[in-house]
Design a protein around this nucleic acid. Structure first.
Length: 221
DNA sequence: AAATACGACAACCGCATCTTT
DNA sequence: CAAAGATGCGGTTGTCGTATT
């Protein structure tokens, strides 16, 4: 019944791969392909488990693997796909030829995540990060159901909040931001122009430069 | 120059699903 | 159909190089 025992872990080498090991793995796969990852290490003369060989091949040794930093267009695509698919890195990687799920995951965690946070966007929900003052304002203005949802989830994650509620919270925050801007610099944002030649835009830029409005708000505008 | 902190990326681990017997 | 191994995926950790003190 079933299959033979999986690779025994006795005498299995771990940690970074050496050039010699890479050479052995590449030579073996180029001549034989990878019929079975479980038996490959033994046949190739490697003291590694099949899983480790597979990972090394897919993420590093494959000839079609694209090395180096992601281009702007690749990064934008990753963000768009992540908004649609969430942390399904292999699905995201399948849309970027030559890129691996591991590489995209690493790039997301070290670069994109921070970049989005800096822009005032929640990297998980892809929606504006809500400040404490905005939450306070919503709590003052909105009905009990919404308040309960806000209090139940300070991070507004999709797992703990329905998307309808999240949308409502975000709209509330945006309304609050506009009000805040009206109060601070006296602009009517129902007719506000984002044309960078326009007087409204110049006034807003000045407010940003002189720290009247904070960086997060500026990015959202 | 040495110690420490930090960032980037490679690799491992555990789990879920698929495949084979 | 059930059991058990194989494979793939996503989260996490480890390692190494660089910057800072």
């Amino acid at each position: 019944m079933g299959r033979k025992p999986c690779c025994d872990k006795v005498g299995i080498k771990k940690g970074p791969w050496t050039a010699e090991e890479d050479k052995k793995l590449m030579n073996f796969i180029f001549t034989n392909g990878h019929c079975s990852w479980r038996s490959l290490p033994k046949l190739a003369g490697l003291l590694r488990c099949g899983k480790s060989c597979r990972l090394r091949w897919i993420n590093y040794l494959r000839p079609d693997v694209k090395r180096g930093v992601l281009s702007d267009s690749e990064e934008k695509l990753v963000i768009d796909l992540h908004a649609q698919l969430g942390n399904r890195w292999s699905k995201i990687a399948s849309h970027l030829p030559g890129r691996t799920d591991n590489e995209i995951k690493n790039h997301w965690n070290t670069h994109i995540k921070k970049k989005l946070e800096k822009m005032g966007i929640d990297p998980q929900t892809h929606k504006p990060i809500i400040s404490d003052s905005a939450i306070e304002k919503i709590n003052e203005d909105h009905d009990d159901n919404l308040k309960a949802s806000i209090n139940a989830s300070s991070s507004f994650s999709s797992s703990s909040c329905s998307s309808g509620i999240i949308d409502e919270i975000n709209l509330s925050c945006m309304d609050y931001f506009w009000e805040e801007l009206d109060d601070f610099i006296g602009l009517d944002f129902s007719t506000f122009s984002v044309d960078d030649e326009h007087e409204d835009y110049e006034r807003l830029s000045l407010a940003h430069e002189s720290n009247v409005i904070d960086h997060q708000l500026w990015n959202i505008v």
